[in-house]
Amino acid sequence: MSFQLNCPNCGKRAVSEFTFKSELKIRPAADADFSEWTDYVYFRENNMGRQVEWWYHRSGCQSWFLAERDTLNNTDHRSFWYEDLEQNSKDKNGGN
């Protein structure tokens, strides 16, 4: 038991109910340079501060969602559905 993450469906739950995937990243185009792919697969911003991340409510509704969280103190995070991600970030996220 630690901090509580807000599932957009179920509400606040202990973070142990969730699975963290990774920070939100832009999937390169299939024909992108290999260096773009290694960047996508291996490299991370790893922000000390706010970042948007993928989480999965494993022990609850089993939904994927995004949370903008401060990695320094876990407080005041904002969680939302992927469909509510601003369209420009989604385009950058690519792959659609």
């Binding site: 999965y56 494993r58 089993q62 994927w64 792959g95 659609n96």
Partner: peptide
């Protein structure tokens, strides 16, 4: 079994 289902659900979401 659970991980792959979760992975599929994720791809379904982002790739539509």
């Amino acid at each position: 079994q659970d991980a792959i289902n979760a992975l599929f659900q994720w791809w379904l979401l982002v790739e539509d």
